[in-house]
């Protein structure tokens, strides 16, 4: 589904990603773990070109994203993204936050989008917040709304960039719950997270990144039960 070949990314002369090749299959739930500064977020942001790769080729369902002639907006419509800091639009109601993109991109009429928004909000238990503004709801609620906003575009894959890192501990659970539900429904997901419990429970594959490379990967059982490299062992010893 998403194919990454020899991806390199450097900011000025600081090299963040070093020759990453990886393939993400439909239905997979890939969780990326690793110490901070290892390039996890940059890797994820390269997948929908929020960061422009310095080198390498990324293909999404046969379309080459890294080709400057590709209509990146059309690709992004099929790749939802959830951010660490939610990035809801504070100048619009929550309903408008959710319906803006589907309506403006011609995916739905306003009426259809309103209906979809309410259905999705109901699913995450927030239908009564439709007319509130983002600053009036809690962090956990914001992140659930951000997930709904991404879902409203009916994406084929969802990218999560540390979705629970900016939340109060007591709100992490409600967001992870929504993500687990999505995973169970078969959504393809790529998740950068520090929630090892979530990785263990939901991931079909765990990637461990360090210093711009994918150092080790495998099923959660392999990664958490039988880590091979020293770097992963010491990382797990610290976080578990």
């Amino acid at each position: 589904m998403i194919d990454v070949k020899h991806l390199c990314k450097s900011f000025d002369d600081h090299s963040v990603l070093k020759d990453i090749s990886e393939h993400i299959h439909p239905g997979e739930k890939v969780v990326i773990i690793g110490p901070s500064g290892s390039g996890k977020s940059t890797f994820l942001r390269c997948l929908n070109l929020l960061e422009n790769p310095t080198e390498g080729v990324i293909t999404f369902n046969g379309v080459e994203l890294t080709n400057p002639k590709t209509d990146i907006n059309a690709i992004r419509r099929e790749m939802g993204m959830v951010f660490q800091h939610f990035n809801l639009f504070p100048n619009m109601t929550i309903r408008k936050n959710i319906t803006l993109a589907p309506v403006r991109t011609g995916l739905m009429t306003q009426a259809e989008a309103d209906k979809t928004a309410l259905e999705l909000l109901r699913r995450v238990g927030l239908e009564d917040k439709a007319d509130a503004y983002p600053n009036q709801v809690s962090g956990g609620q914001k992140q659930r709304i951000a997930i709904v906003r991404a879902l409203a575009m009916k994406p084929k894959v969802l990218l999560f960039d540390e979705p629970t890192s900016a939340l109060d501990p007591e709100m992490v659970g409600e967001v992870l719950e929504v993500m687990k539900e999505l995973a169970n429904e078969g959504m393809t997901m790529v998740v950068v997270t520090h929630e090892m419990g979530f990785a263990r429970e939901v991931a079909t594959r765990v990637l461990f990144m360090d210093e711009g490379r994918i150092v080790e990967q495998g099923t959660p059982e392999e990664i958490f039960g039988n880590p091979q490299c020293e770097r992963l062992k010491s990382f797990l010893a610290k976080v578990l």
């Binding site: 929908n48 929020l50 907006n73 059309a74 992004r76 419509r77 099929e78 790749m79 939802g80 993204m81 951010f83 800091h85 990035n87 809801l88 639009f89 803006l100 993109a101 403006r104 991109t105 951000a146 906003r149 991404a150 575009m153």
Partner: peptide
């Protein structure tokens, strides 16, 4: 403005102008 705002818009498939 927080660049995350524009990033969120773009990640939803909205164009630069929108």
């Amino acid at each position: 403005l927080d660049p995350g705002q524009a990033e969120a818009g773009r990640s939803l498939g909205l164009g630069y102008i929108d």
